[in-house]
């Protein structure tokens, strides 16, 4: 492969000094050509490496199986979790609202007969049972989420493996950095609850901490 050497640079410098524009243009073209060839060759090597890595994989390699079977599953499983938690909070809220109405009934009635009180108690008990039963979602979604965690962890392992087989050093992949503006834009958009160790950085722990900060600002 032709390299950019000292000679060609000196010739270019010489042409610039002699103000030989035609020659300068030719030499620059040549330099660009050499550079482009180098880039193409590097790209070719990379692609070849990737192909070889993929060819090396057996058809039943974990990463291929994950891609075909597990990944489409994950979205469906998570959708299920969203649906079930939403349904459960809907049921719980409905029961709590009904209970609140029943209590109101009791407060507004001047004189409640024993029979009516018994009936109210029965209705309230049934709402309380509804609240308890609605919590059974936790068992189901817990199982589904545990399965998702297993799949994601296995997938992470397979991907790491693939990266290393394609002769990249996983440990050397740089940290993800955001510029101050990018960070600010993300925060402005809202990032949801800070649940990971990373996202907890710079987050206040409690309502009291927030109140203190706001009170310092006169709010």
């Amino acid at each position: 492969m032709k390299q950019i050497d000292k000679q060609i640079v000196l010739t270019l410098l010489d042409a610039v000094e002699q103000e030989d524009q035609g020659r300068v243009a030719d030499l620059l073209d040549e330099l660009t050509r050499i550079r482009e060839t180098q880039i193409y060759q590097q790209l070719e090597a990379l692609t070849k490496n990737l192909h070889e890595t993929l060819d090396d994989l057996e058809v039943d390699a974990p990463i291929l199986l994950h891609a075909k079977h597990d990944l489409p599953d994950i979205a469906e499983r998570l959708q299920y979790v969203i649906h079930e938690t939403q349904a459960a909070s809907g049921k719980t809220l409905q029961a709590a609202e009904n209970l609140s109405e029943l209590l109101e009934e009791l407060t507004l009635a001047d004189d409640v007969s024993l029979e009516a009180a018994k009936q109210l108690k029965q209705q309230m008990n049934s709402e309380l049972t509804n609240i308890m039963l609605a919590q059974s979602f936790q068992d189901l979604t817990g199982q589904v989420l545990n399965r998702v965690i297993l799949i994601v962890t296995a997938l992470e392992e397979s991907l790491k493996n693939l990266i290393e087989r394609s002769k990249h050093d996983f440990e050397k992949i740089p940290e993800r950095r955001y510029s101050e503006e990018e960070q600010k834009a993300q925060e402005s958009k809202g990032m949801g609850p800070n649940v990971t160790r990373d996202s907890k950085q710079g987050a206040l722990d409690s309502q009291e901490d927030i109140d203190d900060l706001l009170s310092d600002l006169g709010i």
Partner: peptide, 29 residues
């Protein structure tokens, strides 16, 4: 809101918020 970064609370204050409650919260808050 669930947003609880110091910088976000400062941003809200600057924008002129009157109160800031972080989720999950209580009736008393």
């Amino acid at each position: 809101t669930a947003e609880a970064k110091r910088s976000q609370i400062l941003e809200a204050a600057q924008a002129g918020v009157d109160g800031y409650i972080v989720k999950p919260f209580t009736a008393a808050t």
